[in-house]
Amino acid sequence: MLGPEHVGKRVAIRISLSDGAPGRRFTDILGQLVAFDDTTLTIDRDGEQIIVERSHIVAGKPIPPKPTRRPRRKD
């Protein structure tokens, strides 16, 4: 599980949806963990700040940084 030591790292979390449609009980969020406290996590996903209640988190883990895209070589 994630902890305050993961702030600043890229993470993946799975949350349960309280009002999910049938067959859609969970969703995943990937982004940079920017804040961690007793009740919430804040994830930055491409400039959008997403605040997640810790009680809704089913699973979470740090993941590697986004791969950088290199321009293709023209031969």
Rank of each mutant, 00 (worst) to 15 (best):
E48C: 05
L17W: 03
V34N: 02
D44W: 03
E48D: 14
I15R: 09
I51E: 07
D75V: 15
V7G: 02
D37H: 08
L41G: 08
D75I: 15
T27I: 10
I43G: 06
R25C: 14
K74F: 13
R14C: 12
R72N: 09
T42N: 06
V7S: 04
R24Q: 10
V7A: 01
D19R: 00
G23C: 05
P4Y: 02
I13L: 14
D28I: 06
P67H: 04
E53M: 14
P71Q: 07
R10T: 02
I43C: 08
T42M: 14
I15C: 13
T27N: 12
F26L: 09
K74C: 08
R73F: 14
L2I: 03
H6C: 10
P4N: 06
G20D: 09
S55P: 09
A35F: 08
G20I: 05
T68S: 11
A21N: 06
P4I: 07
I29F: 13
G47P: 09
G20N: 03
I57T: 05
D37G: 13
G47Q: 03
S16I: 10
V58I: 09
H6L: 01
P64M: 10
I63Y: 02
G8L: 01
R54L: 09
I13R: 00
G8W: 02
V7H: 01
P64F: 07
I63A: 03
L17I: 10
D37S: 13
A59F: 14
D28T: 10
T42G: 06
G47H: 03
T40M: 05
P65K: 01
D28G: 11
I13Y: 03
T40R: 08
L33S: 04
T39R: 10
I51G: 07
I50Q: 01
L41T: 07
V58S: 10
G3A: 07
R69M: 05
K66Y: 08
G23K: 00
G23L: 05
L30V: 12
I13P: 04
I51Y: 00
S55Q: 10
I51W: 01
A12G: 13
G8F: 03
I63S: 01
K9Y: 01
I29R: 00
L33V: 05
G20H: 05
E53C: 11
S55R: 00
R69I: 07
I29S: 04
P64N: 05
I13C: 09
I29Y: 11
Q49K: 12
T40E: 13
H56T: 15
D38S: 15
R70E: 13
S18D: 11
Q49V: 07
P65M: 00
M1L: 04
I57E: 04
V34F: 04
T42F: 07
H56M: 11
I15Q: 07
R10Q: 08
E53W: 14
F26P: 08
I51Q: 05
R73M: 14
A59G: 12
V52Y: 11
F26D: 11
L41W: 03
S55A: 15
I43F: 07
L41E: 11
